[in-house]
Design a protein around this nucleic acid. Structure first.
Lengths: 247, 247
DNA sequence: CTTTGGCAAGAGCGGTGCTCTCGGTTGTGT
DNA sequence: ACACAACCGAGAGCACCGCTCTTGCCAAAG
């Protein structure tokens, strides 16, 4: 960017990219926990110690991969939503987002494992990763908000749930605070109860979507789901219908 | 068992147990992928090569841990269901099972990572693991079957879902073949459509339960869910209500 | 032209899975 | 009672890993 594109800066940029690409390739074959800095070094034909000039530690490399992957996934979700021409067709946007998220994860199983799988043992993701991490659920929330602004409403709470949670405290409250912060749901004249209900179901939808993909990629669906693609479509429809999307 | 409890056989049994226990402890601290045979050897105060007398490879040790953990989790689920005195109260059994599954997973995060997290890179689970692996979902299916035998029915399919899947092939068909095989849902005079719907929702329920626990244990709920325990209760109620459990 | 600093290379430390060999112990058939 | 076989723990060794430190080269900046 700013630091005068000298030959040296350019070379550094190129090599950094090569390292990241090789690391992501290794991610899919070896898994995040077993990501080997030496193996990456061999791939880019450098000595292992040289890689440390670009990333001060294996953890730093992991963080870079984490941010890059979260951003790619979020970008894919946002692009899929934005590609639906009829902005009022929230059902189509909802389905497109579900499909795009799954498609990215299936195309990048290694990165998915890094993002949502077993945490890498001695590694804790730094703060920088939370913003890109919520991009996907932000897309979902925005679609819900648009649907409600257009008059849609969540379906009624099932009677037993309503009875059991009548005087229970709202457990999800801090939950999607950023929804309010970022004004995703302003413009909707929802009652507070409807907002709470919508937040709950949005979180459930995201949780289920993650469960679907995780089961598929980690091999827990063999013999129980014939076709993951149509299965995901159907579940997406059901979750959307609960939210009042797609009437 | 049968092979005459000689002093040697007894010692072998004891040491095998010690190795397994140490390995499971390490599982929680280091993660499944980084499980080090040398580390468990140090824990049981043996030389690493000696451990190979008990498990021919690290993979064999992993398989043993996998089977043992699946069985423990399945046992916990079955015990929770069985502990509900009023067998007709399927809602209570449903909730108890959800709670027990979560409780076991929270108490055994390392084992959970092994069972449901990122697959260990060079390791593929052998056939022996599929039987214990389905015990949990079997418990859920049995409860659903009991509810339907007592007259419960799944709630109506949301209109948009019904419309979209009207002429779509059944994608989940082979799915819970073992439900029919093991006669979990005999005694219910369900229409074929209701059976298909119930199978779908049972799978969705299990998928969502897994997603909930995974998000909680892997740190994707921070800031979005205040109290995982009451949140799980509520989601369990909702999923049960969709299935017609808990009217 | 000199100095600063980025960068590749290599040696070295302690860790890993796994194999092989060497004695000592235990169980068993004669 | 003895001998043979099976078993088992210890140790050395191989090739790999992440990471640190030192050395020396070479381009960029003054």
């Amino acid at each position: 960017m700013s630091p005068a594109r000298t030959a040296r800066a350019l070379a550094r940029e190129t090599i950094t990219r090569e390292i990241l690409d090789s690391a992501r390739a290794r991610l899919s074959t070896d898994g995040a926990a077993a990501l080997s800095l030496r193996a990456v070094a061999r791939d880019v034909e450098m000595v292992s110690s040289a890689v440390y000039r670009y990333f001060p530690s294996r953890d730093a490399l992991l963080t870079a991969l984490l941010v890059e992957s979260y951003d790619e996934l979020g970008e894919a979700a946002e692009a899929a939503d934005a590609a639906v021409a009829d902005r009022a067709d929230t059902a189509a946007r909802w389905l497109a987002t579900f499909r795009a998220v799954r498609a990215w994860c299936v195309a990048h199983p290694g990165e998915f494992g890094l993002l949502y799988g077993t945490p890498v043992p001695g590694y804790a993701a730094p703060r920088d990763t939370v913003v890109p991490a919520v991009r996907v659920v932000r897309v979902l929330a925005r679609i819900v908000g648009d649907a409600y602004a257009a008059g849609a409403r969540p379906t009624a709470v099932p009677a037993p749930v309503a009875a059991a949670t009548a005087d229970a405290p709202v457990t999800v409250a801090p939950g999607l605070a950023f929804i309010a912060d970022q004004g995703l749901w302003t413009g909707t004249d929802l009652a507070d109860d409807d907002v709470a209900e919508a937040v709950r179901r949005t979180i459930i939808a995201w949780t289920t979507l993650f469960g679907l993909i995780s089961f598929e990629l980690f091999g827990h669906q063999v013999g129980s789901v014939a076709d993951p693609v149509t299965w995901l479509d159907e579940v997406a429809l059901r979750l959307g219908a609960d939210l009042g999307i797609g009437v």
